[in-house]
């Protein structure tokens, strides 16, 4: 048996989350689950596969190029994964919006349960996964012949993108199922690091009062090389786009430093950031639950504290 990892990419670059999924797969390999194959499925994406072949972990990279695979539509990608499945005991993908969309479809077609968002590998058939917004950790054992799993990136430090030498093989796509069609994407453009792989994140909540006021966070993010995140309330109010949302139903992050500004600390928000190494909270309400998880709290008006913080960072260089 072997492990199949589904790579995430945009036909040009491999997404970092793929390296976290490879890290989880390498634990399976270490436990005797066999060698790791990485599937790069897309359109005109040979360059991605060639680069991915240098990642540590995979023994083989399987390249599937097909016009129908350009946007990773689950209806067209799932049949390919299902066709490859009989050679594998485990199929892993990152727990990203793409992985969450695809993997349950694959699992149902194989008549197996899917195991979502694992945070640890215990044995070949046993995994830990957070439930109830991370307020409990369940250890689950699968009795299905193929384990179809999505991997919580923050729980598995990424394998290196360099140093491996996998062989490259091509496989056939399955064409279009004719069920769905990609029309367009409006992706947030940003020069800043991606939320889920950033070393430092500064997030704003309802307390920011407007989208313009996020400027106060941006100047600090620029100084620290940080990504910008938000609470659901800030996204719902239209201050920032949806992909900034950190939490149970947004992105799960665990940077070295997380700075929460004008965020109360609802369990759904904490679920997305409480595994950060160091947490700073800036809030004018000293009773705000966010202080309960913060290593360093500042009680004060963010409109006063943020400019001060910017000045202090400038002064200290």
């Amino acid at each position: 048996m072997a492990v199949l990892v589904i790579a995430e990419h945009d036909n040009r670059n491999l997404k970092p989350a793929s390296l976290n999924a490879l890290a989880a797969a390498s634990e399976i390999a270490r436990l005797g689950g066999g060698e790791i194959d990485l599937l790069v499925a897309g359109k005109d994406c040979r360059a991605v596969a060639e680069k991915a072949a240098k990642a540590t972990g995979p023994k083989r990279v399987l390249l599937a190029e097909d016009a129908a695979l350009e946007h990773g539509l689950a209806e067209d990608l799932a049949p390919l994964v299902v066709a490859l499945a009989p050679s594998y005991g485990h199929i892993f993908a990152p727990s990203t919006s793409a992985g969450k969309n695809l993997m349950p479809r694959v699992a149902a077609l194989l008549d197996v349960m899917q195991i979502s968002d694992i945070s640890a590998v215990v044995a070949l058939d046993t995994f830990v996964r957070p439930i109830y917004a991370g307020n409990a950790l369940a250890t689950v054992q699968s009795n299905d012949p193929i384990k179809v799993v999505t991997v919580r990136g923050t729980a598995f430090p990424a394998l290196s993108a360099e140093g491996g030498e996998a062989t490259l093989e091509t496989v056939e796509g399955k064409g279009s199922a004719g069920l769905s069609q990609f029309l367009r994407a409006e992706l947030s453009k940003s020069e800043r690091p991606e939320l889920t792989s950033a070393r430092i994140i500064i997030s704003g909540g309802r307390g920011m009062q407007s989208g313009e006021n996020f400027r106060l966070l941006e100047v600090i993010a620029d100084r620290l090389g940080a990504a910008i995140g938000a609470s659901r309330a800030a996204v719902d109010a239209g201050f920032v786009p949806n992909d900034y949302q950190v939490g149970q139903t947004g992105k799960i992050v665990a940077p070295e430093l997380y700075i929460a500004v004008g965020i109360s600390g609802a369990i759904q928000h904490l679920a997305g950031m409480k595994d950060s190494k160091v947490i700073v909270a800036i809030n004018k309400d000293e009773e705000a639950p966010i202080f309960g998880v913060a290593d360093y709290g500042i009680v004060g008006d963010l409109f006063k504290v943020l400019p001060e913080l910017d000045a202090e960072l400038a002064r200290r260089g």
Partner: peptide
């Protein structure tokens, strides 16, 4: 298809 072997509380953060 999945058997829950145990459910535990996550490690508590020392915040505050």
């Amino acid at each position: 298809r999945l058997k829950t072997l145990k459910v535990e509380e996550p490690a508590k953060r020392q915040g505050g």
